[in-house]
């Protein structure tokens, strides 16, 4: 057996080596081609073109809705609107998606109203401000529920330390000086809370990513979501959610009035 198999073995190995070589070459070429198509510059150019189109669209929106107050090239207009250089797309997203911008009129502070720009227009405007205003805080790539952290208890601790002084400890909002106020946080989306912390809209201080890490911000959002929109309402009318003052007042007035009424009724029936 050993002698008979020895001779053809040499020929076979030769053939095998050739086939293997061809296969390796073919495989190498094929994978190189695949790699090329995967990382080919075609995708890049397409994206850049899309980006350009988005920026051009954003420019149109900017010129139509923003430039009267923020200037032709984001430089701002004295006593009308601040410069938008370096504000970042987080600020653009927050201000436009919450309807604060475009502003209806100059007053103590811009107020929340239905958004005037569509989400697509906001996207385009964000791209335009980002491309022309230089680097600034960027809106996170995650959105919606993904921005809710898994530790609302820690979020509550951080909220009470950093946010509650103005927004009230369950996000009911509160008064500031000269007609300004910290708004209530009901109905505010996760993206808006995150971009507000990042960009510090109007008189709110900025909370950068090094001061409050993204995880900490998400925990804060989880906390806000767990106490706003009626989620912190243990039965009945929340009476503004301001705690014992309004509750005590209403309980006293309504309760005493009811007692007097019942007493009078009993007296009248007797």
């Amino acid at each position: 057996m050993t002698t008979t198999t020895k001779r053809p073995r040499g020929a076979r190995t030769k053939l095998r080596r050739r086939v293997a070589g061809l296969l390796a070459l073919g495989f190498g070429l094929l994978s190189a081609g695949l790699l090329f198509t995967a990382f080919a510059p075609t995708a890049q150019t397409a994206q850049a073109q899309q980006q350009d189109a988005l920026v051009r669209q954003g420019e149109q929106i900017y010129l139509n809705t923003c430039q009267s107050c923020h200037g032709r090239s984001l430089e701002g207009v004295e006593s009308r609107g601040p410069s938008l250089v370096g504000v970042g797309d987080a600020a653009v997203y927050f201000q436009t998606s919450s309807g604060r911008m475009p502003m209806a009129r100059q007053e103590a502070q811009a107020i929340r109203k239905p958004a005037k720009l569509s989400p697509e227009e906001i996207n385009a405007l964000m791209a335009y401000i980002d491309a022309n205003g230089g680097a600034g805080p960027k809106k996170p790539s995650e959105s919606g529920e993904a921005l809710r952290g898994d530790n609302p208890a820690r979020g509550g601790e951080l909220f009470r330390l950093n946010c509650a002084s103005c927004h009230n400890f369950t996000g009911r909002g509160g008064a500031l000086s000269s007609g300004k106020f910290a708004p209530a946080l009901d109905g505010v989306t996760e993206d808006q809370i995150y971009t507000a912390m990042l960009s510090g809209p109007q008189n709110m201080p900025k909370f950068g990513e090094r001061q409050l890490t993204p995880e900490e911000k998400k925990d804060i959002i989880a906390y806000v979501k767990s106490v706003t929109d009626g989620n912190n309402n243990s039965g009945g009318n929340a009476l503004g959610g301001f705690g014992p003052v309004s509750e005590g007042l209403i309980a006293f007035i309504v309760g005493i009035a009811a007692l007097i009424g019942v007493t009078l009724w009993i007296g009248a029936k007797a």
């Binding site: 510090g200 201080p205 900025k206 090094r210 001061q211």
Partner: peptide, 8 residues
């Protein structure tokens, strides 16, 4: 760590 216009 603190952004301009920020406080901690």
């Amino acid at each position: 760590d603190v952004e301009p216009g920020g406080f901690e």
